[in-house]
């Protein structure tokens, strides 16, 4: 079964969570040993940021890996979740939920992101499939997704304005370890991110849908010959995309307590960078890449000042795409990538 890289990868992937956990612990301890709490605090916040980047990067890498489609609506889905949650809470539509209004708002936000993602599928892939028989070989979905980016972003601007808004979460509990202060929302979001991504890996590796997705990634025509109902499986990619972007948006909102119509832009570009670092189309590559970019961002702000991130990250991306297109870590992609 070596023709399916995803399957060949499955044994190695089992040990990956342990490796990542070990690396994180080592980094934090190393940070405390070398630079004391200042560095350790940057490492911790870098990892929290990295968890957000990693979830969005997984969304990007999933659509490219399975459908050969660079989906530019992902940053907007991320933003939609936060803004819808804020809009519903601020206008009192969720007053019945009482103290849990913030959670209901975020759940509604994630739902909207999933629905929006399905809308994109309806007007790009399903339509293309009906008209041309195949959508994975064209630049058309990419251009359409740019159109949807404009639609969603400006609908939010129209209805909720362009200001940055405060999204209050009612708990402030902190945990103190080794003199580090870690917020409970941050810790919970980190754990939730790991669960979501691990769940996705499980779906791709061990379920019937996962096998169908990997078959489509190899070749949509062969997949339908083998009995995969491509028209019913492709929407699942978009549901997963909406879910991942939505959850990342919700976690970002809880962690930083701020929402704005432009909150997805920076996260989106950083997630693309993370995906390229880890290797396009590879789930574990996106996870490692996300953590690396998050760490690189907080540490380079600490040492070199704010604007240096852009050159470092994108310079690295440019070099990697040109010299080592399969990414720094060379993890196997979901499909062959059709490039």
């Amino acid at each position: 079964m070596n023709t399916l890289p995803g399957l060949a990868r499955s044994r190695a992937a089992l040990s990956a969570p342990a490796v990542i956990a070990a690396v994180i612990v080592i980094l934090v301890l190393l940070g405390i040993a070398i630079g004391g709490q200042v560095i350790a605090r940057q490492v911790v916040s870098g990892l929290m940021l990295g968890a957000i980047y990693m979830t969005v990067a997984v969304a990007f890498t999933l659509t490219i890996g399975v459908l050969n489609f660079l989906n530019f609506t992902i940053p907007t889905l991320f933003m939609l979740t936060g803004m819808v949650a804020w809009g519903l809470v601020a206008r009192g539509y969720l007053a019945f939920a009482g103290g849990w209004a913030w959670l209901a708002g975020l759940a509604a936000g994630v739902t909207v992101a999933v629905v929006a993602s399905l809308l994109v599928e309806r007007f790009t892939f399903r339509y293309m499939k009906m008209k041309h028989g195949d959508a994975t070989e064209h630049a058309i979905p990419l251009v359409s997704s740019l159109g949807f980016l404009l639609i969603f972003e400006n609908l939010v601007l129209m209805t909720m304005g362009s200001d940055s808004q405060r999204f209050a979460v009612p708990f402030k509990a902190d945990i103190h370890i080794f003199g580090l202060v870690i917020g409970v929302p941050q810790l919970a979001s980190f754990a939730l991110t790991i669960i979501v991504v691990a769940g996705l890996t499980f779906i791709l590796r061990s379920t019937k849908i996962g096998r169908a997705l990997r078959t489509i990634a190899e070749n949509p025509d062969t997949a339908s010959l083998l009995g995969v109902d491509v028209g019913r499986v492709v929407p699942i990619v978009f549901i997963l995309t909406g879910l991942l972007s939505g959850v990342a948006g919700a976690l970002f909102t809880v962690n930083y307590g701020d929402v704005s119509p432009f909150m997805g832009d920076n996260v989106g570009t950083k997630a693309i960078a993370a995906m390229v670092l880890g290797g396009i189309g590879s789930i574990w590559g996106a996870i490692i890449g996300g953590l690396v970019v998050g760490l690189a961002e907080t540490l380079s702000i600490q040492f070199f000042g704010g604007d240096s991130v852009q050159i470092t990250v994108w310079g690295l991306v440019l070099i990697i795409i040109i010299l080592r297109p399969k990414g720094l870590f060379g993890a196997a992609p979901i499909g062959k990538g059709k490039m």
Binding site: A273, V276, S308, Q310, W314, L318, I322, P325, M339
Partner: peptide, 28 residues
């Protein structure tokens, strides 16, 4: 010369990264 080593989505991303590097360089 380096960009033409890439194709498809990779070329889109390589040129995108080039634009970001130029803007970042000018900003600094």
């Amino acid at each position: 010369f380096p960009v033409l080593r890439t194709r498809g989505v990779y070329m889109v991303l390589a040129t995108f990264a080039f634009g970001e590097v130029v803007a970042g360089f000018l900003l600094r």
